Simulated scan of single mutants.
Amino acid sequence: MSIVGAGFPMRVSNMLAGALGAAIVAGSPASAAVMMATFYGSTDFGGYDYAGLFGTPDNSLAYKSMSLTFVYDTALGVRVTTAGEDMVVQSGGLNPILSASITIDGVTLDLDLPDYGYASSTDDYWTWLSARGTNPANYDNELSAMVIGSGMPGDLETPFMTYGYGGGSLRLWSPTNFGEALAETDFNLGGVEVAYVGPSSPGPVPEPTTWALMIAGFGLAGAALRARRLAAS
Rank of each mutant, 00 (worst) to 15 (best):
M1Q: 07
G5R: 12
G5W: 00
M15L: 15
M15I: 15
A19G: 08
I24Q: 09
V25H: 00
V25L: 14
A30D: 06
A32T: 06
A33E: 09
A33T: 13
M35C: 11
M36S: 15
T38R: 08
T38K: 05
Y40H: 15
Y40P: 06
G41K: 03
G46A: 12
A51D: 12
A51N: 12
L53D: 03
N59A: 12
A62C: 11
Y63S: 14
Y63W: 09
T69P: 05
T69N: 02
Y72H: 08
D73S: 10
R79S: 14
T81S: 11
T81H: 03
T82I: 12
V88I: 14
V89T: 15
V89F: 09
V89G: 10
S91N: 13
S91I: 00
G92I: 05
L94W: 03
I97F: 04
L98T: 12
S99E: 02
A100F: 07
S101P: 12
T103A: 08
I104E: 01
I104T: 09
I104D: 01
D105Y: 04
G106A: 09
V107Q: 03
D112R: 09
L113Q: 06
D115A: 11
Y118W: 10
Y118C: 04
S121W: 00
S121K: 00
D124F: 02
Y125H: 12
T127R: 02
L129A: 12
A131C: 13
A131W: 07
R132K: 13
G133H: 11
T134W: 01
P136D: 03
N141E: 02
N141H: 15
L143D: 03
A145H: 06
M146L: 10
M146F: 07
G149H: 07
G151N: 10
P153M: 00
P153R: 02
L156R: 02
T158F: 01
P159F: 06
Y163P: 00
Y165W: 07
G166C: 07
S169L: 03
S169G: 15
S169P: 08
L170S: 05
L170G: 04
L172A: 09
W173V: 11
T176C: 04
N177H: 10
N177S: 14
G179S: 10
A181M: 08
A181N: 05
G191C: 10
E193A: 14
P199R: 04
P204W: 00
P204K: 09
P206Q: 01
T210F: 03
T210N: 06
A212M: 11
F218V: 15
G219Y: 09
L230Y: 13
A231L: 00
A232T: 11
A232M: 04
A232C: 02
S233C: 09
